[in-house]
């Protein structure tokens, strides 16, 4: 039964000639290291938080001041990286429209395994002021696993730093296993994503 679970992905929405250009492997959960090593590594992870500088909504304007002299998030080891390959955190900056959600998923799946999600603003929690909008999703955690929510419309930079510190605590405690959760519940998340993203012209998993 377990063999069947890690089968190859069909990539059925891609054109037949494009299919062999893309990877069809499923994400696989990676087990932790031994107890003490994992603690040490988690400590390093918690103090070197590289987030993907990808502003998905209006909340992203509050992320930029983090790097200025006034808030100076560098002193906590928080730094923006411009590429998903090297970053470990994705910040959902407020409302995510269906079009942006597609990009969020692509970026999230391109990040490497210990990866965390921080979600800003009320829009990504319950829709916020866009709860009745035709293209804004109401609950981001149906589509990707979220570690920390920061409420507010929009949260101040201090609140964002507080959220980062919350994430640090979670990582140090070993609770932030979003990437493995995503890999284990891959079918659930994929079904939710495909339900609302109508033209799925990308592979099922963007390695």
């Amino acid at each position: 039964m377990k063999e069947k679970k890690y089968d190859i992905l069909p990539n059925s929405e891609l054109k037949a000639e494009d299919r062999d250009l893309f990877c069809d492997a499923r994400p696989v959960p990676v087990s932790k290291l031994n107890k003490y090593m994992e603690k040490l590594v988690n400590w390093a992870r918690a103090n070197s938080l590289w987030f993907l500088a990808f502003g998905t909504g209006c909340g992203a304007v509050e992320v930029r001041p983090l790097m200025t002299a006034r808030f100076d998030a560098y002193r906590y080891g928080i730094a923006g990286r411009p590429t998903p390959r090297q970053s470990g955190i994705i910040l959902i900056g407020g409302y995510a429209s269906v079009k942006t959600l597609k990009r969020i998923i692509r970026s999230y799946e391109q990040m490497q395994n210990p990866k965390f999600v921080i979600s800003l603003c009320s829009c990504s929690i319950n829709g916020g002021m866009y709860f009745d909008s035709y293209n804004t999703i109401n609950q981001i955690d149906k589509y990707i696993p979220v570690d920390v929510y920061i409420t507010g419309c929009m949260p101040r930079p201090e609140a964002i730093i507080a959220g980062f510190n919350k994430l640090k605590d979670r990582i140090k405690a070993g609770n932030a296993e979003g990437a493995n959760k995503y890999a284990e519940n891959f079918d659930y998340y994929k079904a939710n994503q495909k339900k609302i993203i109508k033209d799925w012209n990308m592979p099922d998993y963007n390695w």
Binding site: D72, R75, G77, Q112, N113
Partner: peptide, 29 residues
């Protein structure tokens, strides 16, 4: 550099932490 810009800046051992963290990522494409 951070002090010139009026910030506190990351701790001086930050490069070691970053390397250690990257070394222990679980997957690498």
């Amino acid at each position: 550099r951070a002090r010139v810009y009026g910030r506190y800046g990351a701790p001086v051992w930050q490069p070691f932490l970053d390397i250690f963290k990257n070394l222990n990522k679980r997957t690498a494409i």
